[in-house]
Design a protein around this nucleic acid. Structure first.
Lengths: 155, 155
DNA sequence: ATGAATGCAAAGCGTTTGCATCTGG
DNA sequence: CCAGATGCAAACGCTTTGCATTCAT
């Protein structure tokens, strides 16, 4: 937990640095939104995040949330993801940490994160062979649970 | 080319079979749309496909194109893709062929297809370890060209 | 004949934008 | 001060849907 909040503090620090470097302003709204974004630390959607930040400041408009998420993406502090739900989810990037991938259960839509070095390494090779260098990747495995009578099965 | 059209014929045959199996109807519109979809054979968007089919039958409505694409996805003859352009693209699935992945140039947005056995194999292992079996995957590498003064660079 | 498919227009949904107001540096 | 940020509402673009009509079986 304390380690967790430390990561949030770190992320906020990075965020403020990026704002300053870009000549942008630090505002109360941005702080609330970005803090919640890194605290919750999960593939969150704009309106889930809006719900959260309004607990602290009910006057925050959804446009500000969208604009702040866009800002985070531009500053490489968040990655937009699309799991075919009709809206965009955003994953926080914790500086050092390699960005993870997702396994999505086709039955219950449960989302599991994973990270595999072998895949990352091979990806770099493939890109190299094609004459490119990887900037970022998006890998999603859609799979079904092997357990019989899995309680998560939708049907 | 003749091999190519052969694949289209094969795809049409499969499509008609799936329609019959599902108790759905074969219509002139569906034939035109699906034929164009497999003939063009590239990550196509709904309105690009609409433009194409209207060359042959200008009265086709966009709703029919959307509904047919949805049908193709349900029948596992197409895969929806999202490259962050604000709309969905669809990739035809040629029965035998393993579904390929994409490398997207972050500069010029050029999209290169690739297929790597090592990655596919490792993916299956990862899913296995997590207690899942892969049904399908989505892998996109966002990368930049290594060539200096690449003519494709946007900036 | 009869349930499904079409085409149109309208609605829906997530997201973006114009604009007047406010605020941080 | 003044460029940038906010909040609201309206606009947007892609996609879905309701409905009367047409069509395949």
């Amino acid at each position: 937990m304390s380690e967790h909040s430390h990561n949030v503090d770190e992320a906020m620090e990075t965020f403020h640095k990026r704002l300053q470097d870009a000549g942008l302003k630090s505002t109360k709204q941005r702080d609330i939104i970005v803090e919640a974004f890194f605290r919750l630390d999960r593939h969150i959607s704009a309106d889930e995040l809006l719900d959260e930040v309004r607990k602290e400041k009910p006057t925050i408009g959804y446009a500000t949330v969208y604009r702040t998420l866009k800002l985070l993406v531009e500053q490489d502090l968040a990655v937009p993801k699309n799991f075919g739900e009709g809206m965009t989810r955003y994953d926080p990037i914790h500086d050092q940490e390699a960005d993870h991938d997702h396994l999505i259960c086709v039955d219950c839509r449960k989302i599991i994160e994973f990270n595999d070095e072998a895949i990352v390494a091979r990806l770099a090779e493939v890109a190299q062979e094609l004459g490119y260098s990887v900037r970022r990747k998006k890998l999603e495995i859609y799979a079904e649970c092997q357990i019989k009578n899995c309680p998560n099965k939708a049907s």
